[in-house]
Design a protein around this nucleic acid. Sequence first.
DNA 1: TTACTTTACACAATCGATTGTGTCGACAAG
DNA 2: CTTGTCGACACAATCGATTGTGTAAAGTAA
Lengths: 370, 370
Amino acid sequence: MAPRKKNAPDAATTSSPVSMADLARELNVSMTTISRALSDHFSIGPAMKQKVLKLAKKYNYQPNHMASALRKGKSKLLGIVVPYIEGRFFPSVVHGIETAASKAGYNVIICQSNEDVAQERRNLDSLLSAQVAGVLVSLSRTTLDHKHFDKLRSRGLPLVYFDRVVEGDNVNTVVLDDREGGYLSTRHLLAQGCRRVAHFAGPQHLNIYRNRRQGYFDALREAGLPEDESMVIYTDMLQEQGAAGLRQLLALPNPPDAIFSAGDYCALGAMQEARRQGLRVPEDLAIAGFSNEAFTVVTEPNITTVDQRCEEMGQAAVRLLLEVIDSKGESFTPRQVALRPELLVRGSSLRPALAPVAKKMAASRAKTVG
Amino acid sequence: MAPRKKNAPDAATTSSPVSMADLARELNVSMTTISRALSDHFSIGPAMKQKVLKLAKKYNYQPNHMASALRKGKSKLLGIVVPYIEGRFFPSVVHGIETAASKAGYNVIICQSNEDVAQERRNLDSLLSAQVAGVLVSLSRTTLDHKHFDKLRSRGLPLVYFDRVVEGDNVNTVVLDDREGGYLSTRHLLAQGCRRVAHFAGPQHLNIYRNRRQGYFDALREAGLPEDESMVIYTDMLQEQGAAGLRQLLALPNPPDAIFSAGDYCALGAMQEARRQGLRVPEDLAIAGFSNEAFTVVTEPNITTVDQRCEEMGQAAVRLLLEVIDSKGESFTPRQVALRPELLVRGSSLRPALAPVAKKMAASRAKTVG
DNA sequence: TTACTTTACACAATCGATTGTGTCGACAAG
DNA sequence: CTTGTCGACACAATCGATTGTGTAAAGTAA
């Protein structure tokens, strides 16, 4: 009847883990006493507590999380749903999440949606039946409506979106302040003396790219420069599109002297094309990217970019989620967190003439990697 | 008494999930019938099965994995322990693991050891109390003995090591055939007409670097070339050491015309140094790295390297682990799996004169990324 | 019609931990 | 000596699903 018999023949090689019942038997007390002694309940005497603790140590007792979770209704598991685990961004965020969760005594279950809503839906079901205590989500690219998340809500399951989020003030979100990133980057290019700053924009149905573009325009306006749509190239942030985009810009009657790209790959493509066209970077064309991809410190010159604080995002998301979990019962007012991006000034945008001064300025407010 | 009362006042907003008991009540049958109907047990009539299935769909019934796992003694959770989740390698392997596990109906819990044995130990305890069905491990750098894994063995928990493994034939392991990788790479350089191939070796206490070096020597021997220890530079695979290593090699009376580096970063450093020294790559110096880091397709020229089949490794590890899990009861003979590496021939090693031919050859047996 | 199978389902124990309520003894106040 | 109080622990129900065994009804064979 039992799937695993006590004192089974193979008990010597495959010992069953000790349970509270085992400890109780050994001490001739009830399981109640064991349970309460281990959780430091007031109704258990200090002498008994010591005995229990010692025995638990001796037998290397490991509490069964599933049993505990089953009884208490809440587990020590957090669920993560990300589009995929590759590239620089998501792994770093997951790294931050795992670190923060682990510190709080939680384990994390990780799921990939592969940019597919249907898979995302399955992921949620999977996490539901795993009885997670809360869920952290970054939406798949194909997720247009979020009705499938209502199932979590109706179960009272805490939910926090990060990076790719649902917009609104009735959800918990953690994002990078992309507008600020675009603003800082563009302002930096202007401070280098550039007067015609172009922009490689990403798909505008994604909030991150809309916001980076907005920051770009904000900086131009602040500097009293016109918003010239012919200087904005819309791309999917691919390397080749950066090269093509630059060619397009160079064909203009009044070509740019700088480019703020909403992505590093596009910036890279432009930089390579610039070299092919005989342009010097940054002397003839200053370039700045976005995302702090690993390769940006490998190219020559290194590429100026904006760091997305991946790990901080993961940690912030966990902090927020744990707050919601711990506030169980009282109504928690959803919160939206925006992280300050960090501009990393590097060779691709540091004009030689201004370099000494700019370097100093940059160093005072951002890590400068040569 | 119950942590969450049925028909609680907030039932409208926070509905409790439907359980088998709810379905049983609705149909006026026992939970036994529900359970068996859902698992397609032979003792339940087809008519009843239909009714149960329909009702389950209607109420969107989600089985409680924890309860099931508690009763059956085995969960649908796999544990992963990796040193960290960053860079290219581990995230990709985790990607492969999650994909394969998910396909088999398993969820994965991920833990980071941060290259610390003590943390690794804690990770194992954590996974034990989470009642995982099996564990996939890549050892931390500071793990010298593996007694802490005996705890898993004594619990009968299936265990598979990947990449950083325990050596021996009584454990399950999945690794890359590093010797083959070193051999293929070196042979390629020789085929390009290079006659003095140097080697940047990694720390020799790690089996992966020992094996890459061995492959290098094997290729030389096969070509009838001498093993010249002055052509082997021992490094920690850092970028700067690549540059320094090249300087050291150029100071030799008879400098090399090619370098096989056991790591991409070191290869990159050498390539940059070569440019500074006025050497052309690959004309004066052919270079090949190892690991297929993202930046290898960003440099000019792109860097020839060896792909480590990260995803395949993850999938193979899961396959092996599931075999052990499914073979529960019978004794499973531990198996060691070695994956064939893939040589990616790129610009840094393609000699112009031979390029057309070599390109064709390379394309026929490896992906060539321009 | 009697006896024997099958079919189809119910009963109840069980996994391991938690917790409201009950109980027993000691000790103090009256 | 009695009633009250408090400390320290036991009883037993419970979370949700699983499963060996029991059993009533229906069907088959003799």
